[in-house]
Amino acid sequence: MNRSPERRAAYVVEAAAAREALAAGDLDVAFARLERAHILGQPWVGAHSWTHWMMLRVGWRRRDPREVAGQILRLAGGGLFTWLGWAPAGNTGGADVSAFRPMPYPGDLEPLCREP
């Protein structure tokens, strides 16, 4: 998985935007930015796990039991799967998609995510 400094920098931008949106109470924007952060942060255990933690927080604030349960499961296994190199490329990380399903990268993120 591509671990370029550019990918990491893009992750930091998305994570900051998600934090700002969550602080402002805009849960839809926060979750959308977390999905992008998830795609970008998959190569790093800490970044990947942090994204699932934040998705759990959004699910909790939405009172969405499916999202909360899905994120608890992903928190339990996501770090291990990342460490083992089993994170499915392009997966957005929400409970609405299988945790094992590879997905196409969004067009603007693909150049950052594909292998050099």
Rank of each mutant, 00 (worst) to 15 (best):
G77L: 15
R7M: 05
G77N: 09
G90A: 08
L84V: 02
Y105G: 05
L40T: 00
E67L: 14
I39L: 14
R7A: 06
G77D: 11
G25F: 08
P106A: 10
E20M: 13
P104M: 07
R8K: 14
W60H: 06
G94V: 02
E6F: 02
G70N: 10
N91Q: 07
G70A: 11
M55V: 03
L56R: 03
R66C: 03
G70Q: 11
G70S: 10
N2Q: 13
E14I: 00
A47K: 07
H48Q: 08
L34M: 12
P5Q: 10
P65K: 09
Y105I: 04
L22C: 03
P43E: 07
I39K: 00
R7Q: 07
L80W: 13
L73T: 02
R61A: 12
W83R: 03
A23S: 13
R57K: 14
F81K: 01
V13W: 00
P5Y: 00
W53A: 12
V12C: 07
W60E: 11
C113F: 04
M103P: 03
A99N: 02
S4M: 07
R8I: 09
L75D: 06
N2H: 06
G59M: 04
L109N: 01
F100N: 08
S98K: 09
L27V: 08
E14F: 05
V13C: 04
E115H: 04
V29Q: 15
W44F: 13
L80A: 13
R3K: 12
F31P: 03
W44R: 02
A18W: 13
R57V: 15
A10E: 15
L109P: 01
A30T: 04
E110M: 11
A69Y: 06
W83H: 01
G78E: 09
P5E: 13
V45G: 00
P104N: 06
M1Q: 13
R63A: 14
D28S: 11
P43C: 06
P43G: 11
G85H: 03
G90C: 07
W86I: 01
L75Q: 12
E6M: 06
H52E: 12
N91M: 09
A69V: 12
P116Q: 10
A21Q: 11
T51H: 10
R63I: 07
H48K: 05
G107K: 14
I72G: 05
F81S: 00
L80Q: 07
V58E: 12
G93L: 05
P65S: 09
D108E: 15
A15F: 09
I72E: 08
A10D: 07
M1K: 13
Q42R: 05
D96W: 05
P88R: 10
Q71H: 08
R3S: 14
P43S: 09
E35Y: 01
D108W: 04
E115N: 08
L56T: 01
H38Q: 11
P65H: 10
